Simulated scan of single mutants.
Amino acid sequence: MNHAAPSAPPAPPARIWLCADDYGISPGVNRAIRDLIERGRLNATSVMVVGPAIGRDEAAALLASSAKSPRCAIGLHATLTAPFQPLTMHFRPLAGGMFPPFPKLLRAGQLHRLDPEIIAAEIARQIAAFRDLFGRAPDFVDGHQHAQLYPQVRDGFLMAVKEKAPQAWVRQARRNQPLGKRLTSPKALFLDYLSTQFRRRAARAGVACNPAFAGAYDYSRKVDYGALMRSFLDGLPERGVVMCHPGFVDDILVSLDPLTSVREVEHAYLASDDFARLLAANNVTLA
Rank of each mutant, 00 (worst) to 15 (best):
A8I: 14
P9Y: 12
P9I: 05
P9Q: 13
P10A: 14
A11N: 05
A11S: 13
P12I: 01
P12M: 11
P12Y: 01
P12S: 14
P12E: 10
P13N: 07
A14K: 15
A14W: 14
I16A: 05
L18C: 00
L18R: 07
A20Q: 03
A20C: 04
D21E: 11
D21R: 00
D22V: 01
D22M: 06
D22Y: 11
Y23C: 01
Y23N: 03
G24T: 08
I25L: 10
I25V: 13
S26V: 07
S26H: 08
P27D: 08
P27F: 07
P27K: 06
P27A: 08
G28R: 12
G28D: 01
V29Y: 02
V29M: 01
V29E: 00
N30Q: 04
N30D: 10
R31H: 13
R31Y: 08
R31V: 10
A32R: 05
A32H: 11
A32N: 06
I33P: 03
I33K: 02
I33Q: 01
R34T: 09
R34S: 11
D35Y: 10
D35G: 09
L36P: 08
L36K: 11
I37L: 11
I37D: 03
I37Y: 08
I37P: 00
E38G: 00
E38R: 14
E38M: 13
R39H: 14
R41Q: 15
R41S: 14
L42T: 07
L42E: 01
N43M: 06
N43E: 04
A44Q: 08
A44F: 05
A44C: 12
T45V: 03
S46I: 00
